[in-house]
Design a protein around this nucleic acid. Structure first.
Length: 481
DNA sequence: TTTTGAGTTGTTCGA
DNA sequence: GTCGAACAACTCAAA
C-alpha cells in the first residue's frame, strides 16, 4: 500500500468545513490532513483583529476545532508570524503539500506570497484557492481592460459574466494521524476577562459554521420576501446579519448565492427580492475589487482632491460620537448598538458615518478605526470602501451636497422610535413625535418622560443646520483639483 | 476618437 | 401636507 505524506491545510478567514476548496483539495491528495490555524498578530500591522473580532474568532475557532475533532483530526493552533510558523509546522509533520484559501488584504497578499516562495524553495507543493469571493478581483474588467470604478456597470458585468460555482460539500472523511503539538485556545486570551464587555455579543450572535447556516436559512425563510421594504429599517430584523459570518468564513459567498438562487427558483415571487439581496452581496465583491486594485484605500483618500480637506481634529467631539452621546438620538442609538452587540444596522452606519464626517468634520479614518475595533464583521475591504463612500472621497462618491439630516433619517427609517427606545432607554418614554429631536419637545413632555436635557441626555453637540452649511463650505474647497 | 447616458442609499425650498 | 426643482460639475464606461 502506498504511503502518502501529510497535507497541511492552513485555515485563516475560512473557518468552515463545507465549501472549503483548500480542504477538498487536501483530502484529494489521499494522505493525512493537518489542519492549522496561526494567530499572527504581527503581519497584519494595525489591521490585526480588534476586540470584537477577536471575540468572534475565539468562538469560531472553537466550533471549527470541535467539528474537526468529530473527524478525529484535531486543529493545530500556533502563535507567531505566519511566515515562520507555517514552514516550521510543515517541516515538523513532514508535509509534502500546503494548501490554503486566498486572502485579499494587501498585507496578507504580500505575506502569503513570501510563504509560498519559501515553501516551494523547500520542495513542497503549494496551492491556494478561492474560498472567499464569487469572482476574483482581477476577473472583472471594463472593455478597455481597466478595473471598474463605478458599481452599477460592475454589477452588470458581474451578472453577464459570473456564474458562481456550486458550493462543495464537507468531505466525508478528513483523515488524521499526523498531528503536531497545539497550543491551547484559552491561553490566547481572545475573549475579555474583566470587564466582560462581551455579554451583548453572546446574546446576539452564534459564531461558527452551524450558526451561519441557521442564520442564512432563517433569513431566506422569514426575511427575504420583505427584504426590499425592510432592509433600511433598523427597527426591524430586515437584513440578513450574515456580515460577521462572511468575514470569518463561517459561510462562503458561494453558499449564500446558491441558497438564495435555490429559494428564488422554488418561489418565483421572491425573484426580485432575491436579486436585491444578491446585489448587496456583490457590493462586498466590489469592495474587494477596489481594495485589490487600490491597496491604499484603508489609509488614503481615493479621490486625491480630498487630501486638502480641512478636517477638524476635535477629540471631544470624537469621544461623544464613540460613546453615543451626540444628542442626536438615531446617531447615539447606532453607536450604542455597535458597542453592545458588535454590529450596527447598515442604514444607521450611513447616518453615523455622515454625522462624523459632515456634521463634525472629523477624518473618516477616525470612524474607520473605531468601527475596526468594535465591529464583529470588521473587514478591511468593506470598512475602507464604505467609509470612503460616506466621506465622499471614495468610488462613485455621493454629490457633495448630499448630507444626511439625522432627524429626517430617524423619522423616515425609525418612524415609531422603537430603535431609539431600545438603545437610548433614557428617551424611551418620549412620544414618537419628539423622540428623534428631544430638544424640540415641549418642557412638559420632557418632564413627564423623565428627560432632563443636559443631564439625563445630552443636548445636540452641534446644530445640524449650521454644521451642514459648514460642511458645504468645506467641500467647496476640494470641489476641483 | 467622440459622443452619450448615467451615476446606491439626500435635503431644502418654494409653489 | 405634497410635489418638483435645484443643488455642480465631473467622470465613467460603452456605443
Amino acid at each position: 500500500m502506498r504511503q502518502y505524506s501529510p497535507t497541511l491545510v492552513w485555515f485563516r478567514s475560512d473557518l468552515r468545513l463545507r465549501d472549503n476548496p483548500a480542504l477538498v483539495d487536501a483530502v484529494a491528495h489521499g494522505g493525512p490532513i493537518v489542519p492549522l490555524f496561526v494567530l499572527d498578530s504581527q503581519s497584519p500591522g494595525p489591521h490585526a483583529p480588534g476586540g470584537a473580532g477577536q471575540w468572534w474568532l475565539y468562538h469560531a475557532l472553537r466550533t471549527l476545532a470541535d467539528a474537526l475533532d468529530r473527524h478525529g483530526t484535531p486543529l493545530v493552533l500556533r502563535r507567531g508570524p505566519a511566515d515562520r510558523v507555517v514552514p516550521a509546522v510543515a517541516d515538523e509533520v513532514g508535509a509534502s503539500t500546503v494548501v490554503w484559501n486566498r486572502l485579499y488584504e494587501p498585507w496578507a497578499n504580500a505575506r502569503d506570497g513570501r510563504i509560498k516562495a519559501v515553501l516551494r524553495e523547500q520542495g513542497l507543493h503549494v496551492a491556494s484557492h478561492n474560498g472567499r469571493l464569487l469572482a476574483e478581483p482581477w476577473a472583472i474588467k471594463t472593455g478597455s481592460d481597466a478595473p471598474y470604478k463605478v458599481f452599477t456597470p460592475y454589477w452588470k458585468a458581474f451578472q453577464a459574466r459570473v456564474e458562481p460555482a456550486e458550493p462543495l460539500p464537507e468531505p466525508a472523511h478528513i483523515p488524521g494521524g499526523a498531528t503536531a503539538e497545539s497550543e491551547m485556545l484559552d491561553d490566547w486570551k481572545l475573549t475579555p476577562a474583566a470587564p466582560d464587555w462581551a455579554s451583548g455579543l453572546r446574546a446576539t450572535w452564534t459564531p461558527g459554521e452551524a450558526g451561519a447556516q441557521a442564520r442564512l436559512h432563517d433569513f431566506l425563510d422569514t426575511g427575504l420576501a420583505s427584504y426590499p421594504e425592510l432592509r433600511n429599517r433598523p427597527d426591524t430584523a430586515g437584513t440578513s446579519r450574515l456580515s460577521p459570518h462572511l468575514h470569518w468564513g463561517d459561510v462562503s459567498p458561494r453558499q449564500v448565492w446558491a441558497a438564495t438562487r435555490a429559494r428564488m427558483a422554488a418561489e418565483p415571487a421572491l425573484d426580485s427580492a432575491g436579486w436585491d439581496f444578491l446585489r448587496e452581496l456583490v457590493w462586498r465583491e466590489f469592495s474587494y475589487h477596489l481594495l485589490y486594485w487600490w491597496p491604499d484605500i484603508p489609509e488614503t483618500t481615493w479621490k486625491t482632491a480630498f487630501h486638502a480637506f480641512p478636517w477638524r481634529y476635535d477629540t471631544d467631539a470624537y469621544a461623544a460620537w464613540t460613546a453615543g452621546r451626540t444628542g442626536y438620538p438615531i446617531v447615539d442609538a447606532g453607536m450604542r448598538e455597535l458597542w453592545t452587540t458588535g454590529w450596527m444596522h447598515n442604514r444607521v452606519r450611513m447616518i453615523v458615518g455622515s454625522f462624523l464626517v459632515k456634521d463634525l468634520l472629523l477624518p473618516w479614518q477616525w470612524g474607520e478605526r473605531w468601527f475596526w475595533d468594535t465591529l464583529v464583521d470588521a473587514d478591511l475591504a468593506n470598512n475602507s470602501a464604505s467609509w470612503q463612500w460616506v466621506a465622499g472621497c471614495g468610488a462613485d462618491a455621493a454629490p457633495y451636497f448630499r448630507i444626511f439630516n439625522p432627524v429626517t433619517q430617524g423619522r423616515k427609517f425609525d418612524p415609531q422610535g422603537a430603535y431609539v427606545r431600545t438603545w437610548v432607554p433614557e428617551l424611551a418614554k418620549l412620544a414618537s413625535k419628539h423622540i428623534h429631536a428631544p430638544w424640540q419637545a415641549p418642557e412638559l413632555e420632557l418632564a413627564s418622560a423623565g428627560v432632563r436635557l443636559g443631564e439625563t441626555y445630552p443636548r445636540p453637540i452641534v446644530d445640524h443646520s449650521a454644521a451642514r452649511k459648514r460642511a458645504l463650505a468645506a467641500f467647496e474647497q476640494v470641489k476641483t483639483g
